[in-house]
Nucleic acid binder design. Sequence first.
DNA 1: TTGCAAATCCAAAACGTTTTAGATAGACTG
DNA 2: CAGTCTATCTAAAACGTTTTGGATTTGCAA
Lengths: 334, 334
Amino acid sequence: MPVTIRDVAKAAGVSITTVSRALNGYSDVGEKTRRKVTRIAEELNYRPSAVARSLVMNQTRTVGLLVSELTKERAGHYFMFQVLYGMHDRLAELGYDLILVSTTTARQRLVSYLDFCMERRLDGVIVMGIRLDDPYIQEVVDSPLPSVVIDLPLLSDHCGYVMTDNVHGAKLVIRHLAGRGHRKIGFVNGHSQAAVSRDRKRGYEEGLLQAGLGYDDTQVHEADFTLQGGADGLKHLLQCHPDMTAVFFASDLMAIGGLQYARELGIRSPEELAIVGYDDIELAEFSTPRLTTIRQKRSEMGMRAAEMVVAMMKDHATPQGVLLAPELVVRDTT
Amino acid sequence: MPVTIRDVAKAAGVSITTVSRALNGYSDVGEKTRRKVTRIAEELNYRPSAVARSLVMNQTRTVGLLVSELTKERAGHYFMFQVLYGMHDRLAELGYDLILVSTTTARQRLVSYLDFCMERRLDGVIVMGIRLDDPYIQEVVDSPLPSVVIDLPLLSDHCGYVMTDNVHGAKLVIRHLAGRGHRKIGFVNGHSQAAVSRDRKRGYEEGLLQAGLGYDDTQVHEADFTLQGGADGLKHLLQCHPDMTAVFFASDLMAIGGLQYARELGIRSPEELAIVGYDDIELAEFSTPRLTTIRQKRSEMGMRAAEMVVAMMKDHATPQGVLLAPELVVRDTT
DNA sequence: TTGCAAATCCAAAACGTTTTAGATAGACTG
DNA sequence: CAGTCTATCTAAAACGTTTTGGATTTGCAA
């Protein structure tokens, strides 16, 4: 059995109060007792129980990560992994831990996501990969639990969000392509139940208008965010518009799928078809030809989400909507 | 403040003991009191505090996931994500939760990984992405905490492992290539500090001998597990052995890197160069040409690890070494 | 010496559960 | 009717911390 504060107190010949206060750096404990207690705690290899502490302090210093993509299609991980990395790293810095709350957990226990968080007494929660039609969405907004959503503009009393400015990102793409002289630009979007899809589509549209190019609904094709979806999207677009000279894909994975499909048809990029992706995942730099894309600062997204949820938890900060700036990365496909 | 067992007891007009026993399905509580208690608990939306329960039951029903790759190179996620998925899913089924314990957490707190687990009173731990020269390795083996390591054959009193039979997997590759008539087969291995690299190299070697082909050290090149590493590896191999007709890469990502490099040189696969990868990540099926590879049952790896650690925790099962069977997936590059 | 402030220390309560060891009441046995 | 058994309930202890409110000691001025 692990050594408790009582053991330390006994060995040091002081009360458990003193041990607690000595170890936690309170000022009302003498210097030599403090040293003695510290030494003995060290010797006994004492580790204060986080669970006992949580009980009495009424906070677990734990935030949940709710990710629904963990269960279904897993195309999301190219994007999510680095967000997770940044998030976890910053949380650790701030002294918080991360526990996984995929929706499967909730479903299998037949309790709602919120109930799970309540039972575990989580201090806050970060939500990622959630769709507009996801039933959890309402729960997140309504919940009094401090929460931050990634890639979905939910703002309420206890809910903030972090995402990239996708409208602007898509506009950057169109401006870039128009600048290269393209007049007919297609768009393979992600599924309509992602908030980012709506924004990127709006950016695409506004970008076209600003560039003096007309918007044509038939030049847009909606797919999922997978390789296959990208290939299918391009195929469909080329059927309707064989004279298209550039295509914008709403994710790098889809763009790479499109690139492969183009290669199969013997269409060379960028000579015959310019291609632009979105996200700047690692693969974008290593595809052949290297993919022009919009960079999202993924690990920063994670960090900002972590910071916001912590601020809400400990300083009762009011939730905010954070929009990160996208960045055009020009490589070989344009 | 959340509603406690005391509130329920008061509202139901019984003792807290009875509430506890009613809700936990004990037999020494009358049917009508049970119904009443259940109803009231429901009405008050009572959620028993997992932390209070953990304290008194002396178990947190939480296992830690220690993954070192979360912090450094992130090539690992193509492989790890689905392992994580299977692991988390099975753990949830078994009533356990997963908490992230990347090494950054430990480092930033200046406590060892084990101390972290002790403080949080984790019931067990699963380790992934660890290297042979990782300092944590010793801690894991020595620790009395039930642990399961993925892709590293560590077996001790409290430590089991789950991995694919990599020797066999590599042999399958060589047998397949030899069967296709290849006489000179190169090997781009992962870094030497991965246990899987050693095994795959051994399988490569034994496979060659069994096929009656000689083993030649200069036909092996060691890289990291990245796209770039694969490209560099192939480049190096082709310089020494321009007459090589097939190359086996120790990961799909490296193989895809090699494929790209080959395309740049105008070398067609499989006509001029057969290529085989390892892992069967999603990308393998969508590369052009589609990649022949060895499938690892990633989500099963996660599940088996979950099951083992749970068995060790609650049934004091003795740890085991689990070797999963690899599977040759023949596609277009051979 | 007395009084008082400051510096140290500590007993006990509290956090929200589970579990132990009995208590109470009703039913049955003889 | 006494005794025993069973069914149902509960008071209190325990888990390992933090915190509150005070107790004790020390040092120093009056």
